[in-house]
Amino acid sequence: MLTAMRYASPTTVAEAVDLLGSDPDARVYAGATDLIPQIRAGRPEPTVMVDLKRIERLCAISSNGSTYTVGAATPTADICADAGLTAAFPGLVEASGLIGSDQIQSRSSWGGNLANASPAADTPPSLIVNEARAVIAGPGGERTVPAAEVATGPGATSLGPGEIIVEFELDQPPARTADAYLRLIPRTEMDIAVVGAAARVTLDADGNVAAAAVALGAVAPTVVRVPDAEAALIGNEPAGDALAAVQAAASAATNPIDDKRGTVAYRRQVAGVLARRAVSMAAERAREQGGQS
């Protein structure tokens, strides 16, 4: 570990942006569950670690009734413990709970998960199907972009120099809407997704799909939306042929690689299976919700 590395713990977004903007080798430190092992392995060599966890806004969860605001560094353990988020976005909360162990859950966050830009990250597919917006602060002020536009490739983001994700905004889903997230890992816990699949489904009063979103992780350089699957669902009951179409469309939408965690053929096939199951699970939840509303 670098002895020369400095640690800074700003308490405001402005301070953090200043620190990061004034030094190209400064790095954001939120969970650092990936960064610290990388630094120990000798790469990168940051000059200063800017800890975002003491900035209140970055660790807060709030709702104004129509929109949830979740600080980008909020530990996923807190997200999983939040009843409002769990009711509104069960799949996104499940995805949040899948990041590593309880120990990691104390440190992992949506902001870190998204900004780390790993194609296999668990929460981005769910953030995307829920149309989350990222509020980004930087030297030029704040801007709000769809979460889908943050990661641009493995390890690459659209964040400019000195920019950090401050918080996420999620609109309260309409009635009869729910999401689900499934991932495939070999050993139940403590793994990187070989395939991840998120789905969100809105049902109409007859139980047919009024709106749908399907997104896949770990099967392409960035999260893949599956418009063909979404189209196949609209207007149909989320069952039978429609689900088969989801599976086929999801497999077809993938652009995976062979690596130590999976093969192209395996990822392609399982992406379809998980997408189908995630849609089915989301629809089931939406149906249950419909009964309540």
């Binding site: 092992p37 070999p186 050993r187 139940t188 816990e189 403590m190 793994d191 990187i192 965690r261």
Partner: peptide, 13 residues
């Protein structure tokens, strides 16, 4: 070469 990718069984497994 890590316990992430060299997967020994965890308790939930």
């Amino acid at each position: 070469p890590s316990f992430l990718d060299y997967r020994v069984p965890v308790a939930s497994y």
